[in-house]
Design a protein around this nucleic acid. Structure first.
Length: 574
RNA sequence: GGUCCCAUAGCUCAAUUGGAUUAGAGCGUCUCGCUACGGACGAGAAGGUUGAGGGUUCAAGUCCUUCUGGGACCUCCA
């Protein structure tokens, strides 16, 4: 039930039916016709640019065409009580009572699926993919929530989604990590000093991991790093991956698949795909210039495999092999993405942090090369989050240094507030997260404001002793609405459109903004009753107008569906 | 030197995938409304050359281009 699509199609059909009047030669010429919500000042329910699009194609005055269209639409579509021509040639429509009644009942009937556009596509969304070298920090939080909510959104909209976590359990970083755990164990067991070395991980949490591993591996002597490496690696990675999983769980984020880089390297996925790319001339053997940067001393100009990413929009070609001939991170990632392509998703999506922007072009190039330009990888970037407390930059204790663990944040702020606020910004702007403010119970805090709206609606149903999920038919009732209800209905029919746009543009922030606006209209109506008794919707313990009740039922359905997408709770009482 | 993101009211941000003589919210400022259906709210006012210039379009905050300012990134790391 998307009225905008419904009437766009109806209007197009009527134009095609009367194409001689409009001199319409090609049906393609009207593809830009849309039905939208008119600005509030016009006091109409729907609007369309149809006349202007037609005018453009046949070079006529849009207002003249609007007149002709108005006649035809009023006569042939029975759903409008009036049509007005405004501005340069916009058509504004008022929906008649009969159609409102049908619309309301149909929305109530669709209930938990109201807003879904029955999109039939499959998606793979890779997000978080934090290095398994410790617990999650707050920097991961925005991307985690973004990915999770985008998934919920696409699922709600009818898509099939696989949520994936790529475990970077391979390479130098992992060796440094394992070595750090080993040295911490030596410190605990033999009182050896932990060396001062930049490449080692010296966060406090490494001690926790060391203790846990030590506890589990009681039989091992820890007298040789080389000898114990494999078992140490296995246990350390396992432990930190579990830390990450438990952090994610606290945030309400759950992945469908954890994909190990090591496993993929071992089963030769990388070698296979690079062989294919080589065969297709996307990979060649050559030399690269020494990289800019402070550590070019170890650089050797050796012959290595290079991917022609510049042929697919990247700025330069990229190395697939290191000095020693082993695969680069990029090569492994190509292997990883080839396994995603093998699973035949309609669309691949990666959620990245701002610090990985430079990586987008090359991995997108690789996906294009592997799929013959058929699949493109959509990368959504989440900009940085600035953490504040009462407007001041938040500083961690000296002990923990720069590392701000996610679970510490979760101890101060509940998951609902974190989730909602992390989405209350477009993903490509920096976000300020003040975790004093998000706990306030007032209008400054949008999470609360939306939840409060729902609580108020439920209080009405409690007062009336009516089960909010019970639906009665409107047909026998006189359809009468006031201006507040009119505005609410206008907003209500926007919901499927909001879901559609958010889903198409992959911009989940549109959901909380919409819920906030809907709540505003409701709170405004509620307060009007105090000012003017004519607007009280309960009179003598009974509902004054049954239509009002249905509108409130619909609002609560939308709030439920919206908060389901956001993964935020919605208490009936506060 | 390069790539990408951002710039809208005093502050923080929206803006229906290019729409409407009047660009919207919240906070802050000023004014007003409560023993109610839950005031944890609401109503009103003031506040703008949408960073600057040029272009495309019937229509530009939105697209293209140049410039200015802010941010992220620029290993064969992960």
């Amino acid at each position: 039930m998307n009225l905008f699509d419904l009437y766009t199609n109806k209007i197009k059909k009527k134009i095609i039916k009367n194409k001689s009047i409009f001199n319409l030669k090609n049906q393609n010429d009207i593809k830009n016709i849309v039905v939208e919500t008119p600005p509030d000042k016009f006091n109409f329910d729907l609007s369309s640019n149809a006349a202007m699009i037609l005018a453009k194609n046949i070079n006529k005055n849009p207002r003249v065409i609007a007149e002709q269209l108005k006649e035809i639409l009023l006569k042939e579509i029975k759903d409008f009580s009036s049509i007005e021509i405004a501005g340069p040639g916009f058509l504004n429509f008022k929906i008649n009572n009969n159609t409102w009644q049908k619309t309301i009942d149909s929305i109530l009937k669709s209930n938990k699926s109201y807003g879904s556009n029955k999109l039939k596509k499959s998606f793979n969304i890779e997000f978080v993919s934090a290095n398994p070298t410790g617990p999650m920090h707050v920097g991961h939080c925005r991307g985690a929530i973004f990915g999770d909510v985008l998934s919920n959104l696409l699922i709600f909209n009818g898509g099939k989604v696989t949520k994936e976590f790529y475990i970077n359990d391979y390479g130098n970083q992992i060796e440094n990590f394992v070595k750090s755990v080993y040295l911490r164990i030596r410190e605990i067991k033999f009182k050896e000093n932990f060396p001062d070395n930049k490449s080692l991980y010296n966060g406090e949490y490494i001690k926790d991991i060391a203790n846990a591993v030590l506890n589990k591996l009681k039989k091992i002597k820890f007298d040789s790093y080389e000898k114990d490496f494999e078992i140490l690696k296995k246990e350390s990675l396992n432990y930190s991956l579990n830390l990450i999983k438990s952090d994610l769980k606290l945030l309400g984020v759950k992945h469908d698949l954890f994909f190990s880089e090591t496993k993929m390297v071992k089963n030769k996925s990388v070698d296979k795909i690079i062989k294919i790319l080589k065969k297709n001339n996307f990979v060649f053997e050559g030399f690269l210039e020494a990289p800019r940067g402070d550590d070019s001393s170890s650089w050797k100009k050796t012959k290595r495999l290079i991917f022609k990413s510049s042929s697919f929009g990247d700025d330069t070609d990229r190395a697939l092999q290191k000095n020693d001939g082993t695969w680069t991170y990029f090569a492994n990632d190509i292997g990883y993405h080839s396994t995603k392509l093998n699973k035949k998703y309609d669309s691949l999506i990666n959620i990245l942090g701002a610090d990985h922007i430079g990586y987008i072009k090359r991995i997108s190039a690789a996906v294009s090369a592997m799929s013959n330009n058929k699949i493109n990888l959509t990368c959504k970037v989440c900009q940085l989050v600035k953490f504040l407390k009462n407007g001041e930059p938040f500083k961690m204790s000296k002990r923990s240094g720069d590392f701000f663990p996610l679970n510490k944040l979760l101890k101060e702020v509940n998951k609902d507030s974190i989730r909602f606020m992390m989405l209350y910004r477009s993903n490509d702007v920096e976000l300020e997260f003040d975790f004093k403010k998000v706990l306030e119970k007032n209008k400054d805090n949008p999470v609360f404001y939306v939840q409060y709206c729902y609580a108020r609606i439920n209080s009405i149903f409690r007062t009336l002793k009516i089960d909010p999920s019970k639906k009665t038919s409107l047909s026998s009732v006189d359809f009468k609405i006031n201006n507040f209800e009119q505005k609410l209905l206008k907003k209500i029919i926007e919901w499927p459109k909001v879901v559609e746009v958010a889903s198409n543009k992959k911009e989940p922030h549109r959901i909380p903004f919409y819920l906030y606006e809907l709540s505003t209209l409701f709170h405004s109506y509620w307060s009007k009753g105090n000012e003017d008794p004519n607007y009280k919707f309960i009179k003598n313990g009974n509902i004054a107008n049954k239509v009002t009740l249905k509108i409130f039922q619909i609002i609560s359905i939308i709030l439920e569906n919206g908060m389901f997408i956001l993964g935020v709770s919605l208490p009936k009482k506060m």
